[in-house]
Nucleic acid binder design. Structure first.
Lengths: 192, 192
DNA sequence: ACCTTCAAAGAACATATATTCTAGAAAAGT
DNA sequence: ACTTTTCTAGAATATATGTTCTTTGAAGGT
């Protein structure tokens, strides 16, 4: 019977995330992917077919494995604390690296419809989850009663993207943590 | 006496901005730059030396010619209205295209120290200008008296980047205009 | 009108890069 | 131990791409 594959797909996808984060899509060359992931050229093309298709798989893995879990905080339904948990996790995640999805949007969004679609879907989801969380917060009277929920959700969504860009430049993330507190603080009701 | 150069450097730099916006740095190939700008290979290398150096020149031009003028709104010293003018101009500018500087940061920031430096400088400047504007707004009593200016400026800076990303995905800019209103509205004092 | 100088166009070159192919070796069953 | 399967490593290939070179001809002065 034949040999079994030596490589672990999940580990490879994780390693690939870092490579793409560092050099972008076009800046990443196959030689580096092969060198830094634990598998070989033939295996690569047997498994993924092409660099482009590989990116889609990596991006899907990135979404499922990381972004979804972070966004998951917003679905805990604890109102404002959930939003705080989300930002804390997000800032930790993007610190010093940025966000692969955001990077793909800015690098490839114009040319690649699939990337655009994934990006739109992600942002829509984020905004909907913020809305849900803010509504819950309102029910729990954690929020200023006259808060415009839709607008606030839109703000928070923009803010998230801003972090992803900042994280590439910012050495430490204390600054980002502080900004988050400043952002969320004023949302809280004075008379809970 | 010799012929004079036919090309107009400024026009070329403007044309190049669009090419880089569409395909990113590594995704842009020299053939397209040559085809879409009004000059030829020889002229290009005589003038700029390399693709990389050309990017720096384009970026500098982009900064001087576009970003600086938009950020200039913040130096009008009218407080909140200046911030509103800034966002209006920025949204118009990035609509459907994104921001070249932000794109370069996310694509090249990890590998290219010069890009990182330009990016940091730009964001610092933006934040300082926001602070100045917010202080002025406070003096003019356009602002909630208990606003934390530093944090608010940091937030606004993050929004700007978020917009740059959103603009790549958003077909129309109504959404972004709405977000701006949602963003700036709550800053205004209730008792001016 | 003629000559000189250099711009314009694109061919040519060298390197980089994605993808395919080949040879040898390692695992698993008999 | 032997055979089979297919994995691994890396050579090979074809194309893409940044850069340089060559040829042609246009502009401007005399």
């Amino acid at each position: 019977m034949p040999r079994k594959a030596q490589y672990n797909i999940n580990a490879i996808l994780d390693q690939a995330i870092d490579v793409f984060l560092e050099h972008g899509y076009h800046g990443t060359i196959m030689d580096e992917i092969i060198a830094r992931t634990e598998f070989n050229r033939r295996g690569f093309y047997l498994e993924f077919g092409s660099k482009q298709h590989f990116l889609y798989v990596v991006l899907e893995h990135y979404h499922q494995q990381y972004l979804k879990k972070i966004v998951g905080h917003l679905e805990q339904n604890h109102g404002l604390p959930s939003i705080q948990d989300f930002f804390k996790a997000y800032v930790m995640h993007v610190k010093g690296k940025g966000c692969l999805l955001i990077n793909c949007i800015t690098e490839l969004g114009f040319d690649d419809a699939k990337i655009r679609e994934i990006g739109r879907h992600y942002l829509d989801r984020l905004q909907i989850d913020f809305i849900g969380c803010l509504e819950k917060a309102q029910n729990l009277q954690q929020l200023h009663p006259n808060t415009n929920i839709e607008s606030t959700a839109l703000q928070l969504t923009s803010y998230v993207q801003g972090f992803a860009v900042n994280a590439v430049l910012a050495g430490d993330t204390d600054e980002l943590q502080l900004a988050t507190q400043a952002l969320l603080g004023p949302l809280a009701s004075r008379t809970p």
